[in-house]
Computed example of a mutant assay.
Amino acid sequence: MRMDRDRPAAGPLVRGFGPAGFKVDAPDGTMGVYPALLLTATRADAWTPPPLESLDAAALAPVLGEAIEFVLIGTGTDLRRPPRALIAALEARGIGVEAMDSRAAARAWGVLRAEDRRIAAALYPLED
């Protein structure tokens, strides 16, 4: 699936996704495809995520160093609930958690970044 926006957001944008991963335009004009992905307003990084039930703040450390409102967690092909301990740990730091399937999270990323929201995203692969 290809996604385009009328008003581009600053930073890396997810331009599409499929079985191979997420197609991302980086701020420097390069494009990459990532099976799993960590996103901030300034960068896109390949990610080797732990099983969702083991996800903790340490696994998200690369995106938690920036001032963010919340983290979008794309849980893969289906919506699954992240661990309660992760949600509690992030909320204790003043960071909200929004979980959705990875396709929805990839779409939401562009919309929320176009609104200049201070967010990060952790997208699990679309194929298990």
Rank of each mutant, 00 (worst) to 15 (best):
W109Y: 08
L52T: 07
L72M: 06
I87T: 15
P27H: 01
E127W: 04
A92L: 10
A122T: 02
S102C: 04
R80Y: 12
G18V: 06
K23Y: 12
D6Y: 14
G76H: 07
V24T: 02
A106V: 07
A58H: 15
P19M: 14
I119Q: 10
V33E: 06
P62V: 10
E98W: 00
A114S: 14
G65D: 09
L72S: 04
K23M: 07
T40V: 07
D28M: 05
F22S: 02
P12I: 08
G29Q: 13
A61P: 00
R107D: 09
G76Q: 05
R103S: 06
L55M: 06
G32H: 05
E127D: 07
A114C: 04
L123H: 10
G11P: 08
P8C: 02
V97C: 05
W109I: 00
K23E: 10
R117Y: 01
D4H: 12
W47C: 04
F70I: 00
A41L: 01
I119H: 02
P50H: 05
D128S: 07
A58N: 11
D28S: 06
P27F: 00
A61K: 15
L64C: 08
A20H: 02
R81F: 14
R2Q: 09
E127N: 14
P8N: 03
D4F: 14
D4M: 07
G65E: 13
A121L: 09
E53I: 01
G96Q: 05
A121F: 12
R5I: 00
A121E: 07
P82K: 11
A44S: 11
A89T: 13
R113N: 03
D101I: 11
D128N: 10
A108C: 04
L64P: 03
S102F: 08
E66P: 03
L86N: 13
V97T: 08
R113P: 01
L37N: 13
L37V: 11
A121I: 10
M31N: 02
R84V: 01
L52Q: 04
A114P: 01
I73V: 09
L112C: 06
L60D: 10
Y34Q: 06
R80V: 05
G11M: 02
A61L: 13
P125E: 00
A120V: 02
D6R: 15
G21V: 08
V71I: 07
P35H: 09
T48P: 00
K23V: 13
A92G: 09
P62G: 14
R107A: 00
I73N: 04
D25N: 07
A26V: 01
M31P: 11
M1E: 09
I73S: 04
S102N: 06
M100H: 15
A122I: 02
L86M: 13
M3Q: 09
R113Q: 04
A41G: 15
F22R: 01
I95N: 07
A61M: 14
A122M: 07
L13D: 05
P12Q: 10
R103K: 10
A59W: 15
A85T: 13
A36H: 08
G29F: 06
A36I: 03
A67V: 08
D28W: 00
A59F: 15
E115M: 06
T75K: 09
A20Y: 00
V97Q: 02
